[in-house]
Design a protein around this nucleic acid. Structure first.
Lengths: 258, 258
DNA sequence: CGACGATATTCCACATTATGGGACCTTATC
DNA sequence: GATAAGGTCCCATAATGTGGAATATCGTCG
């Protein structure tokens, strides 16, 4: 894959390319090597090393897979994010009050990554998952984190999400035109919450609000999401104040005042 | 840290030592460098690289922390474990039936690592967490994965757990002597389930059963855990059949027959 | 203000380190 | 028992990562 790396990091770049290849599903030395452009001996050395470190494991019949050390480090990364500690009790309260699915996400470049989730109690489980990445512009929590940005930046993130949606085998039914998107975002930035109805996945909608740190910067988004019968615009708007209040409570926990 | 590495992996070893240092809480270049034994320039290059890859992020005022890419890869590692996919619905059913906390763990060396968890609905949240490692010999799910081992191996794992427990600031009240431990394990290997009452953490107990793959090898452990008023030996034994049946259902899903 | 310490970042000559070609091993397939 | 596919090991070579020192950045105290 890409090699836009810095100086003095050839072996590192290759090792991480190797890991990415495995993450992408390549499961034998030959295909990993083709992906990273390394010879068999080098590929082997890198894989063996990653294996020793627990980043990769070899499973009889299935080949190379991501290892348990990554599960461990992923969990550690989550707890090093003070946000998740502060937010947990508030997410649980919100879950009790709404019976719906609660999501907490942070921005990661032009995407959003879920850092916590509590499943709803209305049957149907959503496919979202802690660690999942989604384009920032088509998720409720992502849009909540766009509220302080300029319109040109909205445009960029919107078209990026559009590009990714085009690649989908089952494009979401609620995807908005740019002008509809823009006017809705203008409304949201006034009201301080965002809605997202089937822009990202069919049958799923949510209300979200931004979470701020001590400097007033938006650092995360909180949402209540649900499935088909419960995602009428009216019901979501009804939920907005409680989502906003929960987000504000987390913001206070992160040191935000006023 | 340790340098028992293979050939031709100095820079890799150092990069991973760097990552481990950050995971261990070192948050500035100086202390990371001291931990890994690298000079400032080398430390800097490694950290910068890991940062570019999203394995590490720099947070104003808090220094270097584990990055979002690890959260993502951790989640991917979890889904590459077919076990978690197969087990999920069964865990949910068990959760509904018992109202208690459900744990699913796999063996990772001499430890066990939680790969899935559903919190109970009896208030009190346990401190366990997906990605957490515990000594194999003092967890219900760990002991379930020891059932097919020999008594000498039981002894080794027991004393290892003992060593780790000694280091604890608050040693668990239910820690057994070796002879008590051995006789209980002999019972468990006959009955096919295991109990663990406050051997690992005060106020917490569980029943667990082993999960097997197509070759009949034990590959995971499943437990129902609860807190104080619900962890009498009698109640846990009462739960054993349903835990065993759930574990068997997952085993069947993994290809185990008879 | 200007000096200081703590922290991060860049540069470059040098030798230590990672590299890749090829040999070899093991297991499955015909 | 010949062929193939996947994995492992060895070793001479030069390309790579290294560390020292120089530079930049920031905050704080006299």
């Amino acid at each position: 894959m890409s090699d836009h790396a810095g100086q003095g990091t050839q072996s590192l770049s290759r090792a991480f390319a190797t890991l990415n290849a495995v993450a992408a599903g390549k499961s034998d030395l030959a295909s990993i090597g083709k992906e990273t452009g390394t010879t068999r001996s080098t590929t082997h050395r890198l894989v063996a090393f990653l294996q020793r470190e627990g980043f990769i494991r070899h499973v009889e019949g299935r080949g190379y897979l991501l290892g348990t050390r990554l599960i461990e480090l992923g969990a550690a990364a989550l707890t090093q994010m003070p946000l998740t500690v502060v937010a947990r009790p508030i997410l649980e309260k919100l879950s009790d009050e709404t019976s719906d699915t609660i999501h907490l996400s942070v921005r990661d470049g032009d995407h959003v990554i879920y850092v916590d989730k509590i499943s709803g109690r209305r049957g149907l489980e959503m496919r979202s998952r802690v660690g999942l990445r989604k384009p920032i512009a088509v998720t409720g929590t992502g849009k909540a984190q766009m509220l302080d940005l300029g319109e040109d930046e909205w445009a960029r993130l919107y078209s990026l999400a559009q590009t990714e949606a085009l690649g989908d085998d089952r494009p979401p039914p609620g995807f908005l035109t740019w002008s509809d998107y823009l006017s809705s975002m203008r409304d949201f930035s006034l009201s301080g919450y965002t809605l997202e109805i089937e822009e990202n996945e069919a049958g799923i909608g949510c209300v979200a609000a931004p979470i701020r740190d001590a400097q007033g910067k938006i650092i995360a988004g909180l949402s209540v999401a649900s499935t088909q019968p419960y995602i009428s615009r009216a019901r979501l708007i009804e939920l907005a104040p409680i989502v906003q209040e929960s987000a504000a409570a987390i913001s206070r926990g992160m040191g935000y005042v006023r």
